[in-house]
Simulated scan of single mutants.
Amino acid sequence: MLPSNDPDGRSWKRVPVLLAALLAALTIAVTPAAATTIDTPTRVTAAASPASAPASAASAAAVSRGWNNYSCKPSAAHPRPVVLVHGTFGNAVDNWLGLAPYLVDRGYCVFSLDYGQLPGVPLFYGLGPIDASAAQLATYVDKVLAATGAPKADLVGHSQGGMMPRHYLKFLGGAAKVNALVGIAPDNHGTTLLGLTRLLPYFPGAEALLSEATPGLADQVAGSAFLNRLNEGGDTVPGVRYTVIATRYDQVVTPYRSQFLTGPGVRNVLLQDLCPLDLSDHVAIGLLDRIAFHEVANALDPGRATPTTCASVIG
Rank of each mutant, 00 (worst) to 15 (best):
N298T: 11
S64Q: 15
T42A: 15
N188I: 10
C275F: 04
A53S: 14
R229G: 07
D105N: 15
L169Q: 04
I314Q: 13
V156C: 06
A299Q: 09
G107Y: 11
S112Q: 06
A53Q: 13
P204F: 08
I28L: 14
Q272K: 08
V178W: 02
L23Y: 01
V15P: 00
S112V: 04
Y125D: 06
R43V: 15
V44E: 09
V237I: 10
A297Q: 14
L279T: 12
A311H: 12
G66P: 11
A20D: 09
P276W: 01
T306K: 15
D235C: 05
Q136E: 15
H167I: 02
A153R: 04
F203S: 14
G90H: 06
S258C: 02
E232C: 05
P129S: 02
V83W: 01
G116K: 04
L300T: 13
Y202Q: 12
A24T: 07
T308N: 11
L123D: 12
L127I: 13
P3F: 13
T148M: 13
A24Q: 09
R241Y: 08
G265Y: 00
A180W: 05
F111L: 04
G161H: 08
A299V: 13
W96D: 02
G286S: 09
T27G: 15
V82G: 02
A35H: 07
I130P: 00
F260H: 09
R65V: 03
N68M: 03
S71G: 14
Y115P: 07
A20K: 05
R14H: 05
S211Y: 00
T262M: 03
L274Q: 02
M163K: 04
S71R: 15
L99R: 13
L199C: 01
Q136F: 01
P264M: 01
A53G: 00
L99F: 12
D250P: 03
I184Y: 05
R257A: 14
T40A: 14
T262H: 08
R229W: 06
A218V: 00
A24L: 13
Y102T: 00
F171C: 00
V144C: 07
S11G: 13
N91K: 02
L155W: 02
Y202G: 09
A225G: 10
L217E: 12
T254P: 11
H189C: 01
P3C: 10
K73P: 01
V283P: 00
E295H: 07
A62G: 11
A46M: 09
P101Y: 00
S59K: 10
L19S: 11
I38T: 14
G116T: 05
A208Q: 15
D187W: 12
F293G: 03
T191D: 03
L103D: 01
Q259E: 15
L261K: 03
A34C: 12
L217H: 11
R198Y: 09
N91L: 04
F203P: 04
R257D: 12
D301T: 14
N91V: 03
R229S: 08
P3N: 07
N179Q: 08
T37D: 14
N5M: 08
N5E: 12
A292P: 08
I285L: 01
R14T: 04
T197E: 02
A299R: 09
L169R: 07
I38E: 14
Y102H: 02
